[in-house]
């Protein structure tokens, strides 16, 4: 189609084309028009509030006044607080538990369900269905699965005369219990991101591969996976960002307990802001969370980029 549209033939047209392609890459102010609508909201509703939050973190304040300037005092208080250090550790632990699981399971599901059949469509709906539930219900379900004596798990273990692990009240298991519930709840997004990436892989490549009699494994390993590498990075980064912000599941399943073993940073922030009314402390903890997410996401981004360049 593109060729047919080229007027005439000859080298002059080709030169014109080259010039046009060069223009395509020239920095032009009017191109900003495409990104400026979003940037307007980004700056007014994210960047400005972020700096406002940083300013707030330098104050001793509650919701009903501007408070007084205390410098970095809120940050010092955080680093003196054993529990804050514990919740930072908890949050990293939770991210390590959930992010790889979500990415790998999501990818496997997408590979298995990327077909145009009715069965596959129904199964995709099933795997997506848990995502539509609100966190209140998700946690209620998993609490009744995990809870002692009456829970589903306890019942099943009971059939074999065994005692079920206490996922909600054993400090070494609490975070794992929350992670299981989270993976169950959140698997829909990575699966769908991988599915839409798989849809972008040009079919010609597969056709060529099948002509070459490439084995299924070779096709998967050498064609499918490399072409969705970018999406894999995207999924990892998005999940890092999301799972660092764990809140509802921990609040509703264990209240962060026992002994703060399952308390994530956001729950700490919530308690500081809304229960202790210590807005400055909450703001300071939010900024630290921001920095941690940024480091984790950037690290992931650069690691994957370097690998990509080598490969």
């Amino acid at each position: 189609m593109a060729e047919a549209a080229l007027p005439g033939s000859n080298s002059s047209a080709a030169a014109g084309a080259r010039k046009a392609v060069q223009d395509l890459n020239a920095p032009l102010w009017r191109n900003v028009l495409f990104v400026s609508p979003y940037l307007f909201f980004f700056v007014t509703l994210l960047v400005v509030p972020l700096f406002w939050g940083i300013w707030l973190s330098l104050h001793k304040a509650d919701a009903f006044g501007t408070g007084r300037f205390v410098g970095l005092d809120n940050y010092f208080r955080l680093f003196r607080d054993k529990i804050f250090l514990q919740v930072v550790g908890n949050t990293f632990y939770f991210v390590l538990l959930t992010v790889p699981a979500l990415a790998v399971i999501g990818l496997l599901l997408a590979l298995a369900l990327n077909r145009n059949t009715r069965t596959a469509a129904a199964l995709r709906a099933v795997y997506f269905a848990s995502s539509v539930l609100s966190v209140t219900i998700v946690t209620l379900i998993w609490r009744t699965v995990f809870i002692g004596n009456f829970g589903l798990l306890a019942t099943v273990y009971g059939w074999f005369g065994a005692t079920a692990p206490a996922f909600l009240s054993d400090p070494t298991l609490a975070m794992i219990g929350i992670a299981i519930a989270t993976v169950w709840w959140c698997i829909g997004l990575p699966m769908m991101l991988f599915l839409s990436a798989l849809q972008q892989v040009p079919r010609e490549i597969y056709e060529a591969a099948s002509l070459d009699n490439a084995s299924r494994w070779r096709t998967l390993w050498h064609i499918t996976l490399p072409s969705i590498r970018r999406t894999f990075v995207l999924v990892i980064i998005i999940e890092i960002v999301l799972q660092f912000q764990l809140f509802g599941q921990a609040w509703l399943m264990t209240k962060g307990g026992p002994n703060n073993a399952s308390k994530p940073i956001v729950l700490y922030i919530y308690e500081a802001t809304f229960i202790k009314w210590d807005l400055g402390l909450g703001a300071a903890a939010s900024e630290i969370l921001f920095i941690l997410i940024m480091i984790a996401a950037l690290a992931q981004y650069f690691i994957s980029r370097r690998k990509g360049e080598e490969g």
Partner: peptide, 21 residues
């Protein structure tokens, strides 16, 4: 890069400021 950094901003870091705004 600025927009991508924005991805790392947790809701709690902007919630109070947005509410005041």
């Amino acid at each position: 890069i600025l927009v991508l950094l924005g991805l790392a901003v947790p809701e709690q870091a902007v919630l109070i400021a947005r509410h005041q705004l």
